[in-house]
């Protein structure tokens, strides 16, 4: 009983809300995303993923920038090849951008709404679990194609 309560509490624990609550963090993440997008757009080396670069194994988020770039240019096939979950990241990140730029009152309303939905649905946790399953399947089943694509 205690274990199931603990699991349930962990599952419905907000993940995005604590990020939204810190405006400096939202601002720096937004700035970093803009910079990363610009670097990728101009074929310059951007943020280096430590897992991919130094452990030789792509992390669950590898390919996301290229997938988002493909999504914004309307190339859904390329987006799917790089990272099928990119649209969900875009939705999640749009909350971070909104929390960075919105005035205090609207920002508080946004945080309350996101907190409520996270606590009710456990959506962020479900998304993280899905992300890890997706990464694991690509790593184990589509190993060669996945590595060729990401590296």
């Amino acid at each position: 009983m205690a274990l199931s309560r603990k699991v349930s509490t962990s599952l419905f624990q907000p993940i995005v809300t604590p990020i939204l609550e810190s405006r400096p963090l939202c601002l720096t993440l937004t700035g970093a995303a803009l910079m990363q997008s610009a670097l990728v757009a101009f074929n310059k080396p951007g943020w280096i993923c430590p897992t991919r670069e130094y452990l030789g194994c792509p992390c669950p988020g590898c390919g996301l920038t290229r997938a988002v770039a493909a999504l914004f240019s309307g190339d859904l096939q390329t987006m799917m090849a790089y990272h099928a979950l990119a649209p969900f990241f875009v939705i999640g990140f749009s909350f971070v951008v909104a929390a960075a730029v919105l005035p205090h009152h609207q920002r508080q309303r946004l945080i309350t709404a996101v907190d409520w939905s996270e606590r009710r649905s456990g959506i962020a946790t479900i998304f993280l679990i899905t992300l890890f399953c997706y990464w694991f399947v690509r790593l184990v089943i589509f190993n060669q194609a996945y590595f060729n694509l990401i590296f």
């Binding site: 993440l29 970093a32 992390c59």
Partner: peptide, 9 residues
């Protein structure tokens, strides 16, 4: 782990 840029900031 997923988003090392988040860890950094």
């Amino acid at each position: 782990i997923v988003c090392s840029i988040y860890t950094f900031f």
